[in-house]
Simulated scan of single mutants.
Amino acid sequence: MLETIRLRFEPISPKHLEDAADMFCTNNRVMASTLKESVFTRSEFDSLLHTDFINEQEPVFGFRCVILKESNRFIGVSGIHKIKYQDKEYCEFGFILNDSHWGQGFATEIGHHWILYAAETLQLDQIIATVSPHNLASRRVLEKLDMKYMDQVTSADRGDRIILGRTLS
């Protein structure tokens, strides 16, 4: 089981589906600085579920639900994805947290987890994360995790992104 001291990472399941849909489809504050930089339609969310969410125990890459252990409550999504920027393939970790859980150290805890997982379990040499240039709080989290500026890119589906990376070996 993937977990930290306070959090568990679970495949998407019916018990968390509506909480995830609510965050992606109605929470403008959260979605303004993530993925497509706006809320999703339900159809877009359903498509994302089928392409980017893990729904089984075994798969490595994709979004998992972030569950607060003490309450068994959905607080966001996180995971590692394979992604291509400027003709180079990377493994990227990311997190999207419901705004009611911002500022409590969860993003840093999640980042530590995925960096350790990438180094020890996946045996990667490098991990990256991307952030909107306007999302200063998330950029500070990534810098606190010893991730360094690599580049800034613009993609059709995610807009402007700053790439930060960390060597793991």
Rank of each mutant, 00 (worst) to 15 (best):
L17I: 12
I80W: 05
A118S: 15
A21G: 02
P14S: 10
R29Q: 13
K84Y: 06
L136T: 13
R158E: 14
K36G: 04
E10K: 14
K15L: 10
R42W: 09
V77K: 05
L2V: 06
I80S: 09
L68A: 05
D151F: 00
E10N: 12
I5R: 14
E109T: 07
G62Q: 00
L2D: 04
L35E: 06
L7F: 10
S13I: 05
T4Q: 10
T41G: 03
H134L: 14
R73Q: 15
T108E: 08
R29D: 14
F9D: 11
S71F: 12
G76V: 02
V66N: 05
H50S: 14
E70R: 12
R64D: 06
T108R: 07
D125R: 13
L145M: 11
P14H: 07
T51W: 03
L116T: 14
S155G: 11
E120C: 10
L49F: 08
N27G: 08
Q152K: 15
K84L: 10
S132V: 00
V131E: 01
T154V: 13
A107R: 05
N72G: 13
L164I: 00
L97G: 08
L116P: 00
D46M: 12
T51I: 11
L164C: 06
A21K: 15
I163D: 06
F106Q: 06
N28L: 12
D22M: 12
I83G: 06
V30A: 15
H81Y: 02
R64T: 03
L168Y: 00
M147Y: 06
K69T: 10
E3I: 05
G94Q: 03
W114S: 07
T26I: 05
L168F: 04
I115S: 06
N135S: 01
T26K: 15
R6D: 12
L122S: 11
K148R: 15
H81K: 13
S71R: 14
A118K: 05
S132R: 04
R161S: 13
W114T: 03
E56M: 08
D52W: 09
G103A: 04
F9Q: 07
V60H: 02
R73V: 09
M23R: 06
S78F: 03
E92W: 00
T34H: 07
F45W: 05
K82P: 01
K36F: 00
L49H: 03
E44Y: 01
A156I: 11
L97D: 02
A129P: 08
L122P: 02
F95A: 13
L48Q: 03
R73D: 04
N98W: 00
K84S: 14
C25D: 03
E37V: 08
P11F: 00
F53H: 01
H112V: 09
R161K: 10
N27M: 04
K144D: 10
D151T: 05
F93M: 11
V141W: 00
